[in-house]
């Protein structure tokens, strides 16, 4: 085969792959958007669901999902800030650095269903909390933790050494340097991490379906140990009755809203990442 022919073949195969990927992408977007927009209406967003979700809307599912992930963010934030400060300021031993990195980032690779099982064993069964939205929030907080720790740590690490030195020169002790110089920078990083973590957490089904959600009768939980309804588990219930056109339409509507929320969180996260980068490079 001549060189030129081989090169042509390569370009052909490569563009074929691109075309196929683009086709898949277009299919996914158009299916979700087209079906989703057809299902959307103000009343769909603002009313409770009825009769297995085939009728009514998804108001409490939206609220429940938001409640759970925002509480998860609240739980995650202080932990991630503390861990990142310790990693960046106190953990100087290279081996321990490496070990802590593997342990924290290893958490990121754990399959989501395992988190659900962990919550089921520890909280629902051993601590006997029952099905509880708050347990769901704790588990989602654990899932978000690596992302937030990493973002915070990177933000703190990107602070030029000169800042620390000048703070030291002003007579600040180590802890004052931490709170005065690192924390503000780290906080910006943590918010970026949180937004990206939220984008992932709000779409998760497997971690919460055993431990946090119930089928019906939920509006807003009145206590920590009550279940909640959420968008992903609602879509799961609707997907199982996909031949009922009303249920299917509501499933597309709920999917569209869920993707909207995911996109909202990730785009805000990406904006916050770029904004924050320019600050640290000043």
């Amino acid at each position: 085969m001549s060189r030129q022919l081989r090169n042509r073949l390569f370009l052909l195969v490569s563009s074929g792959a691109v075309l196929l990927c683009t086709a898949i992408l277009l299919f996914l977007f158009s299916v979700i958007t087209w079906n989703g927009i057809n299902a959307l209406s103000p009343s769909f967003l603002l009313t409770a669901s009825r009769s297995f979700g085939a009728e009514g809307g998804i108001f409490y599912q939206i609220l429940g999902s938001l409640l759970m992930v925002l509480t998860a963010a609240l739980i995650c934030l202080p932990l991630a800030l503390g861990a990142a400060i310790y990693k960046s300021e106190y953990l100087k031993n290279a081996r321990l650095q490496k070990a802590s990195a593997i342990l924290i980032y290893g958490l990121n690779g754990i399959p989501s269903v395992i988190f659900g099982i962990f919550g089921l064993i520890l909280f629902v069964n051993i601590l006997n909390t029952g099905i509880s939205w708050f347990v769901g929030a704790i588990i989602l907080a654990i899932m978000m933790l690596p992302t937030v720790v990493l973002a915070t740590f990177q933000a703190m690490n990107s602070i030029p050494e000169i800042y620390r030195e000048s703070a030291r020169a002003l007579g600040l002790n180590h802890w004052q340097v931490v709170t005065g110089v690192l924390l503000p920078q780290g906080f910006a990083g943590a918010i970026t991490g949180l937004l990206l973590g939220l984008a992932r957490a709000i779409g998760e089904t497997a971690p919460i379906m055993f431990i946090a959600t119930a089928f019906s009768g939920i509006e807003i939980p009145h206590a920590l140990n009550e279940p909640v309804t959420a968008l992903p588990t609602h879509i799961l219930a609707l997907a199982q009755q996909a031949t009922d056109p009303r249920a299917l339409q509501n499933a597309w509507g709920a999917s569209f809203v869920l993707i909207g929320l995911v996109t909202l969180f990730s785009i805000t996260g990406l904006i916050s990442r770029t904004k924050f980068k320019t600050v640290s490079q000043r």
Binding site: F215, G217, A237
Partner: peptide, 11 residues
């Protein structure tokens, strides 16, 4: 009939 009693149903 009983607005103060909430019933949570799960499958």
């Amino acid at each position: 009939k009983h607005p103060n009693i909430r019933i949570i149903v799960n499958a």
